[in-house]
Design a protein around this nucleic acid. Sequence first.
DNA 1: CTGTTAGCGCCTTCAG
DNA 2: CTGAAGGCGCTAACAG
Lengths: 339, 339
Amino acid sequence: MVTIYDIAAQAGVSAMTVSRVINNTGKISDKTRAKVQRVMDELNYVPNHMARSLVLQQSKLLFLLITDITNPFYTTLARGAEDAAKKSGYRLLFGNSDESSQKEKDYIDTILSTRADGVLIAPASDSSLPHLESLRRHNVPFVLLDREVPGMGSDVVLGDTKEGARKLVDHLISLGHRRIALINGLPTISSARLRLEGFREALKLGDLAYDEQYVLESAFEPKSDLSDIESWLDSMDPAPTAIVAGNNVLAVEVIRTLHARGLRVPDDLSVVGFDDLGPYSEIDPFLTVIAQQAYQFGYLGMQMLIERIEERGAAAQPWRRVVLPAELVVRRSVAKLPE
Amino acid sequence: MVTIYDIAAQAGVSAMTVSRVINNTGKISDKTRAKVQRVMDELNYVPNHMARSLVLQQSKLLFLLITDITNPFYTTLARGAEDAAKKSGYRLLFGNSDESSQKEKDYIDTILSTRADGVLIAPASDSSLPHLESLRRHNVPFVLLDREVPGMGSDVVLGDTKEGARKLVDHLISLGHRRIALINGLPTISSARLRLEGFREALKLGDLAYDEQYVLESAFEPKSDLSDIESWLDSMDPAPTAIVAGNNVLAVEVIRTLHARGLRVPDDLSVVGFDDLGPYSEIDPFLTVIAQQAYQFGYLGMQMLIERIEERGAAAQPWRRVVLPAELVVRRSVAKLPE
DNA sequence: CTGTTAGCGCCTTCAG
DNA sequence: CTGAAGGCGCTAACAG
């Protein structure tokens, strides 16, 4: 491994001079600078980020931690974050927590030990609290995306989830549906809780009773075992005429399960969901959804993060909370019921 | 920042003892271990991996560099790489080069200075050569995914691309198609070249002439300007009855363009492609494709990478080249033509 | 079983 | 303008 000492020896200067050339600090004669530069090129020198960070106690690296890298909502968000980071001259690395608190913890450790300057994070669940506290304790700025964590104040970018759930239910009611079911994420996730709240409120406003048997709480991420969904579908009596899915993954899982038992959407049952299915849904628009502005989640979140990083030392600003609108996109997965 | 010295002082032992507890090395009395452990918990100690890597000269960090984070092929691949890395106790970070050679270079620099133990990389194009040479020079093992780079020997995981292209064309021919067009990636990408070769061979075997006007070379990644596709579609005379798309992104772009001009698939024109559209295509299987084993690309590639890392110093093994099969999945985007 | 010494590669501080 | 000394947090090698 080539170090600044190797460069220094070759160039006949001290390591300190090399360091100054690299960081463009202090005053150096053009001749010395040129010589050092030449030797660095010859030896293919690459600065050691770890040694550097050890001394400086900081890097120029940002992290984005998402919970499901195969979910188009998060990958689109990632592109937004990337573009915003690039615009400000930061580098961005990604991590995938897979909705697992343990994996999230591992990433947080990696992030802490890599001395990232900041983190954009979609927390796995409420149990992410200790991880966020750890970031806070170590003075690493972060911005939460899509989900909040009770007990942790911070900047955050959210979707207008409750309103989205209401719009979905209203849409179903307006088409004559009266028995509406909800398959949702786990209640340890703030966005799932809001979806349930919005769902209940919309039912109440529509003069429909809330019936617990019509609600299933499953996991937001893709899974191979869908037996909980299967038995839930079988158990509901009378069967619902429409199902609201808490995210795109659940929507797909419900529809697949329905297909597997010979039921067609929307002929036999209507299905609506949250979040679009990615650019690929465009070729055959099928699922009626609440489309969230995924790219904006990442872009705005990254801007807020960078502002926090760069205002460091200045008077602490109050936490900011951005709520992005939820738009209903009507396609063809809902049937109009006879009066 | 809490260091092992703080722990040591609090616990009344030496820093070395703390280090041993953390790494579970050497022999330590249960009492000492318990005491140290307790202090670590109290002080919320987080080990500094940079300091650790500095002395160990290895980071246990691996990188995966993909070219399009919004493409389900790559995200599924990423999940495979992640699982394999985890199984061997490595951490994995992701980067997205966006098919850009410049962004790729930036990531390679980050990777080098972060002293990653190895890199899994889908190269942006043939012009990635200098970046790979840089990795090699610095002794960072890497495995190429999906694409090769002429002039650079290495382990590589490829799809059976040529065979895939042949199957696609054969399928079209068997359904009566005679005027078959190809929209492909840029010829600076090895997989695009192979697709074209397979395409031409299949035409020849089917006694069909190769006609240059039926081939368009566009970019593999999503773009907002589709005018090249539009004018190509207009220009072909006589119009083709079927189009082969070099990847899923191109397939979607072609279909969208067709829809925009009121043409239906497959009624007016048949379309087939490479790579599936992600888990979400399952709810409404439409596009006939060559499905590649994306997860396996990542999983096997990661295994090969880790083997390289851990065999270090042993006699150099010859490069390995894994070719994964290409499976034709027939759905409903192809029309059967009358005799 | 536990402690001491030295150094990983780099940068800050203080001298020239 | 340039250099020497010291230390960031940690662990290998050697001593007890």
